[in-house]
Nucleic acid binder design. Structure first.
Lengths: 335, 335
DNA sequence: CTGTTAGCGCGTTCAG
DNA sequence: CTGAACGCGCTAACAG
């Protein structure tokens, strides 16, 4: 079953069917009616493989993230899918588990499928994967995390500023012994958040500051382990900055395990909010990232690259984090 | 750049390159070495569009779910991707938002792409979408929810039994006024869970039972709204059965809003657990579905259909729900 | 065990 | 504005 069968049935040439299906070129209204009738009568489904092979363009894009179980990325995935779906694109999601090897393998697969473009949350800040994509003339948008020495469209949240605000809050509440539970070294969001904290600290000019910084994966386990370690220290910190949602939850569980009250004994602030649909009692004071907008913006940029080939240079979109004050910081709650 | 270029460089025939890349047919070790050298030297990436067009098989499957923001489906997505990825398959995820029209649109797109097979969580129990897929000779595995009058491979959790156990627990704890906050009518998981409740109720043979059943979408908002309504009734229920995780969270928020304590004033049990990575203080007594195993099993069945064409009829895999007793039911917590 | 030939279904190109 | 011919890159079928 192909467009020739449809053409025969509708009494037109195959190419007319093609133009009708793809809205490329003119197709007379009466021909369109006969063609559509033939299509539904035959149950014809156009073959995008053949179409893509011939035209060297596919209506498929890919989103590569590092952890699909993190609601932050789930929300991004949804945004990308909504945006791309409206434009008639299919989205392939891939999950790298922060593993550069898995990332490389998936990118290879995506290029083999000739996806039209890729939105990449890089597992590491080296440009290998992104360069590989670009070598194959596939448009790319970098999302969430920076890649060193690589010029590209880039959508991210202002991690530095969000962390700065959270840390400033802790300092203004009088905390002097603070633990920073960061994400992994070599990931820009980790580093920006630590940098934001450091800026707040240096601007505070407070005396007797005791700031400890720990690095580990963006996981609950890591947050738990780092917190247990932290709580054994003397002097014990009176506040914790958690670099993402999973680390924060790990920290809360650890403090619960060692019978430390939040926020009475130790205050906690965190980067990344959790979706309200999943949380019964919102408790954490957070810098919330506009995940949906980030995904939407990334998809829009990619789609515009795919329609207009006019290269207008690269853009960097930086969206602000929103500070949401709740109980965990021990700070006065907004009315 | 194509396999002919590679073949020329390696001094073999194009078909030999093809056989080497796909491990189909024999390729001498020395040829393989020369071919691999040529591939990496040229930066060649095989074109799966052409391959799929010719061979009428693609290394791509699709997973269609109704709500990608629900961790239950996220976990399934991850399982499918892990399983398929190992076998060299790419997965396309689609999200229907419980909308049959969106479902139809996505399935059309997937068939156009000639995916090798589809794992479908149907938005409704009518066989339209599934029949459409089968008409196009694409293997299909139904996941989570039953489709009426349609024979197919089917992987699900035993909703009836899980609900039966939860409801039995409430009854044995002495509750007589119970509200069932169900999912939508016409979705088999909803109906099975209500049926399980009803079986427990009829077996209990308790007197003075006052059971009210409400139906609504599987969302937090619906859980909230139904709970507010329920709490205004006289006599007020002393226990709530929530048909999924989102409904349960909505119920908890509603009870909090009207100053009803859980479990002291009202006990709550729910279907679906929430991932531990997202929850600080696990509180809900639940029937937990083996989401990862469900996704894995569905993917395995689909992949086996794709490799062996030997039709051995259809299988229905029913995995048990696990009852996890926590505080919300007011029942004695397991040691 | 390897190579040759032909064609998958479509869209580009150029002619009518 | 519509149609005919060709070829995209690959592999099935068959030959050597």
């Amino acid at each position: 079953m192909n467009i020739r069968d449809v053409a025969k049935k509708a009494g037109v040439a195959p190419i007319t069917v093609s133009r009708c299906i793809n809205d490329s070129g003119y197709c007379s209204p009466e021909a369109r009616i006969r063609i559509e009738a033939a299509i539904s009568e035959l149950g014809f489904v156009p073959n995008r493989l053949a179409s893509g092979l011939r035209s060297k363009r596919t209506k498929t894009i890919a989103l590569v993230v590092t952890d699909i179980t993190n609601p932050f990325f789930t929300t991004i995935a949804r945004a990308v899918e909504d945006t791309a779906g409206e434009a008639g694109y299919t989205v392939i999601f891939s999950n790298t588990d922060e593993d550069p090897l898995k990332e490389k393998k998936y990118i290879q697969m995506l290029l083999e499928q000739r996806v039209g473009g890729i939105i990449l949350v890089p597992a590491q800040s080296t440009p290998d994967s992104a360069s590989f994509i670009r070598q194959h003339e596939t448009p790319i948008v970098i999302l969430d995390r920076r890649i060193d020495n690589f010029k590209a469209d880039f959508v991210r949240c202002d991690s530095e500023q969000g962390a700065y605000q959270l840390m400033s809050m802790l300092l203004s509440l009088g905390h002097r012994d603070i633990a920073i539970l960061s994400g992994p070294v070599g990931v820009s969001t980790s580093e920006d958040r630590v940098a934001g904290c450091k800026r707040a600290i240096s601007e505070a000019k407070a005396g007797n500051l005791n700031i400890q910084t720990f690095y580990g994966p963006f996981t609950q386990q890591s947050g738990y382990d780092m917190s247990i370690k932290v709580m054994a220290k003397h002097p014990r910190p009176t506040a914790i900055f958690a670099a993402n949602n999973f680390i924060a939850i790990g920290a809360l569980k650890a403090l619960q395990a060692v019978n430390v009250r939040v926020p009475e004994d130790v205050a906690i602030v965190a980067f990344d909010d959790l979706p309200q649909a999943l949380i019964t009692f919102p408790f954490l004071t957070v810098a919330s990232q506009p995940a949906y907008e980030m995904g939407k913006k990334a998809a829009e940029i990619l789609l515009s690259k795919l329609s207009n080939e006019n290269e207008t240079g690269f853009q960097e979109i930086v969206l602000p984090a929103e500070i949401i004050i709740r109980q965990s910081s021990g700070s006065p709650v907004k009315p």
